[in-house]
Design a protein around this nucleic acid. Structure first.
Lengths: 122, 122
DNA sequence: CAGGATCCTTTACGATACTG
DNA sequence: CAGTATCGTAAAGGATCCTG
């Protein structure tokens, strides 16, 4: 049950706000959603795949963001024993629980862009 | 219809990625989700209400973020003619389309926190 | 190939003080 | 009350080079 506070007769849910903060702090930064969104489509991807796939990201950022995601158990990292070593990244089961959120994020952005387009035609 | 690219036999949707970028650029920053989430609960709120309600925000950030949100037609601003002037902020109809997204964001964060709690008990 | 180290720029954010 | 102006800091992000 949510704890409530009352401000100027306006009931406000603190638990909800904390949820927003938590999610944002875990998914902060410019690239996490892109990485997750990409992994959501190509189930297992190498470092280079991600680097090529995510437009504009550099290896430093990619590496750092992947470490953050791994620490939070959203992404798993597997070192393959190939000649020059290779690493495979994929979503964990827990990472997959982000699908609805990322779907909403993408969906809203797509609709937003369409609404801009329409308003320019009128 | 979504445009697709193929990378290492992995089909990737660019439109989806662009949607993510668009949403993130509009809702970037530390406070936008908090502001929107708060307005989602208390339908009409004054500047001071928001300032008190959103823990940690300062008037400079609040004012700036509200302007961003207003520019993107997500929030409407109404000046009341009271003795010292007063301003009412509320979500536009378009801003309300963010409800599912923000709900997901809050929900995931709440569940995340619970999963941490459980894993500490075991 | 996968990433770490270094250096540098930019932006975000915050505290404080002030104004119509 | 609802902001704006100014200033300062910290964090985020990027370019480049380097290594097992």
């Amino acid at each position: 049950m949510s704890k409530k506070a009352v401000v100027n007769n306006t009931p406000v849910c603190q638990v909800r706000m904390q949820g927003i903060s938590d999610t944002m702090s875990i998914l902060s930064g410019k690239w996490k959603f892109h990485i997750l969104g990409t992994l959501m489509e190509g189930n297992k991807l190498g470092f280079m795949d991600l680097l090529r796939e995510i437009d504009g990201i550099g290896s430093k950022m990619l590496s750092k963001e992947l470490q953050d995601l791994e620490m939070n158990k959203l992404v798993s990292r597997t070192v393959m024993n190939t000649k020059p070593i290779t690493v495979q990244y994929s979503l964990t089961e827990y990472g997959k629980t982000l699908s609805p959120l990322i779907d909403e994020l993408a969906k809203w952005g797509i609709e937003y862009r369409q609404s801009i387009y329409k308003s320019k035609k009128n």
